[in-house]
Amino acid sequence: MAAELGGLAWPARVQIWDAALAAVRGYFREAGLREVSTPVRVPAVAVEPFIEPIAAPPGLLATSPELAMKRLLVRGSGPIFQIAHVFRRAEVGDRHSEEFHLVEWYRLGADLDPLLADVEALVARVFAATGTNGHVPKTWQRARFGDVVTATCGARLRGDEGPDALVAALPPALAAEVVAALVPAAGADPAARTLMAWTAFFTAWSDMFFETWLKGHEGTHLVDFPAPLAALAVTDPERPWLARRAECHVGGLEIANGYVELRDADEQRRRFAAVNELRRAHGSAALPIDDEFLTELPGLPPCAGIALGLDRLITLAACRTRLADVSLALAGG
């Protein structure tokens, strides 16, 4: 079992990070993307229900470079990539660290396919460059969110169910989790309650069913997310109950999350407001809304973007299961 291999020796850690960073840069340069480096301290972050920023007065440490990179796209940057240091408070475990590296990139055109092809190529390239025995997925499959839900727990979901319809469609164990999560959101508006219900469902379903299902699959792109989990993605124009969002998994580990990017500032503002309402119902502080970002958002060219966790990819390349086994952090990790 890989977990028993333990941490890499320091020279091997330095070598593997050097090889991986060079492989990522080499891949994107060849693909014609420009490298950018946006500020780590930012005035506001994307408003997410369960991603907590770390305060760095007078701003916050970036939880992702997403908003800053989109503002460069608005200014005509063309396709760009970044290897960003990001911070998420209280995410500490074998597969989480409060500070980590996101490889984030954007391509012009409203299409997820080129990004998913990038993920597959990048995984193979990093694994090859590190010269370790990491198991590169031989095959990648696309799995539709609704199909995997049905296959694993039997529920048939379309994606636009309200809280009550969602609860009614779920098996008892999952329904109970959603009902429990809705209790503190009793007074919230319908959009916030729907978001809460779907987020609670996704959390419980991932924990009880999806992680087990993933173990039998090498490389998986989970696509066609339900619209309430769209976050910063567009909904599908022909099937508005679905979001054009994808989540990529290797060896049972989530490594990337991509969107066809939403360019409708009013819709984005409504979604951020719903998230903040959910956060308040949950006892978390509402997050500041980045008004400058929203003002500029209509100028975003049609594009798709994705973020990949580099620490996790290197951990997989090294056949390890804990980020701390490959980390260059000298204390804790």
Binding site: G93, T203, S206, D207, E254
Partner: peptide, 13 residues
């Protein structure tokens, strides 16, 4: 024993 898990953009457990 302690295990932190967090499905993509879901709630931490």
């Amino acid at each position: 024993e302690f295990l932190f898990v967090k499905p993509g953009k879901g709630q931490g457990l």
